[in-house]
Design a protein around this nucleic acid. Structure first.
Lengths: 96, 96
DNA sequence: TAAAGTAGTTTATTTTATAAACCAAATTAA
DNA sequence: TTAATTTGGTTTATAAAATAAACTACTTTA
């Protein structure tokens, strides 16, 4: 019988899931790029990136592009595993 | 390019999603059955069923089984559509 | 040099999810 | 028989999350 396994609450958030999905498909991505692709506000994105970073799901690097600040994000091994695990769990909810 | 469509917030909740998933695969289900299958507490389930009912995603019928109260739930046409739409949107997050 | 834009962060507010407490009736145990 | 426990829930309170609004620091443009 189908079991409703717990869904990683860190990934079960629209914006964080979008960010992780995006980062799954690229080597790394800049703050502004992620913001545009996900359609989020900067404030919300900043908070959610922090959470993903604190959880060790992504690595965030702060540097400069010319004179402007540049925040670059990259999914970690732990993040990839968490994402894949989340997908597997969620599939059981979706397959009816 | 992949678009991160908005996910129906009513369905993007672990318990409500489990309930809807369950109701997608049966004609109807009783409160206690849903509670057991989803592993939720009665209080939480009661609240979430109310929300799904208020949204018109499920129909809730209150009656009696012998002398005990019996709450029966059934997914509605609107609920089926919402679920299918949610699944479609979410697939785009998951396929990386 | 003043206004507007960029790239964010921080803080406050609203919304959610969840847990705890409660209720009414039925059942079981002393 | 009456006191405790269980059943099937609902209501209320609390904790956690998401989001928006306000702010910072610096840069570019008019």
């Amino acid at each position: 019988m189908k079991a409703f396994n717990d869904l990683d609450p860190l990934l079960h958030s629209q914006l964080r899931l979008a960010v992780m999905s995006l980062l799954m498909s690229v080597k790394s991505a800049e703050f502004v790029y992620i913001k545009e692709k996900t359609g989020s506000t900067a404030g919300n994105l900043s908070v959610q990136l922090d959470k993903l970073s604190t959880a060790g799901y992504i690595e965030v690097t702060k540097s400069f592009k010319g004179k402007k600040p540049l925040t670059t994000c990259k999914i970690s091994k732990k993040g990839i595993e968490a994402f894949e695990n989340y997908v597997t769990s969620l599939q059981k909810y979706l397959d009816t």
